[in-house]
């Protein structure tokens, strides 16, 4: 029996599901080994009978929580797809302010009070609402990693994320350290698995895959200070994908 797979999205750009489509010809293999039963971005059919649910996006509202809990109930395995689902990602940036304040900034005087569509709470990652079995981090996800996770789930090998930092992949790519180019990089504290794609293209790591289990934050801050990065600038960079109130 092929595992039945469904995709769902919450507050997100839907770019992670797009990476599944971006597997291009490999999609033909994918639909050979799993049965895709719901994939709103690409399919009309949908079903509540599935084994594996891939969930993209952050959770913003009570109505989203309800839907997510239904998905968790139906799914044997729930995989959080992408930074928004895994850690909250950029959606978390707004948690710096109160809900009322951000509503006012965007919707100004419009009458949205009591309207359930606009009834938001501070951004949550998926695992703040339901249990998550596996995570495919990144903004967007690395499609090769997605393919690997699907293959692993299909043959019964528990997917495991790299436990080492982006620097490992960056060194193997023989990049010039972006610090040497006068840039800022979160590679040393960020979980690898992206093949160090940003530093490889001359930009610093933004931490979209989330921190390691035991990030060396103090050591990293020392290094940033050594390279002349101000505390304010550090806060902004650390917060981009990994916002935590009052801390970096």
């Amino acid at each position: 029996m092929k595992p039945r797979v469904a995709f769902f999205d919450f507050a997100s750009c839907e770019g992670c599901q797009l990476q599944v489509i971006n597997l291009e010809e490999k999609i033909l293999d994918l639909i050979d080994v799993v049965e895709v039963v719901s994939f709103r971005e690409a399919m009309k059919e949908s079903s509540d009978d599935y084994d594996i649910a891939f969930v993209e996006g952050s959770i913003m509202r009570p109505m989203d929580e309800e839907r997510l809990k239904r998905i968790r109930k139906n799914a044997r395995i729930l995989v959080a797809l992408g930074a928004c689902a895994c850690i909250g990602g950029v959606n978390r940036l707004r948690n710096e302010w109160s809900v009322d304040e951000v509503k006012k900034e965007v919707y100004d005087e419009a009458d949205i009070e009591g309207n359930r569509l606009f009834d938001v709470f501070p951004t949550k990652a998926v695992d703040e609402v339901v249990d998550v079995d596996f995570r495919i981090p990144g903004c967007p996800i690395n499609r090769e990693e997605f393919a690997k996770v699907v293959a692993h789930l299909a043959i019964g090998k528990e997917p495991r994320l790299p436990s080492y930092p982006v620097c490992v992949e960056c060194k193997k790519n023989e990049n010039i350290c972006v610090f040497e180019l006068g840039k800022f990089c979160l590679g040393p504290v960020t979980r690898a698995g992206c093949n160090a794609i940003c530093p490889t293209h001359g930009d610093g790591c933004e931490g979209c895959r989330g921190y390691l289990d035991d990030p060396r934050m103090e050591a990293a801050k020392d290094v940033l200070r050594k390279y002349g990065v101000s505390f304010d600038e550090m806060m902004k960079r650390f917060n981009m994908f990994n916002y935590r109130k009052g801390a970096i």
Partner: peptide, 14 residues
Amino acid sequence: DEAPRFFEAMVRGK
């Protein structure tokens, strides 16, 4: 009905 994400608010100060 997609959840509002408030980008215009979140880029302030960046």
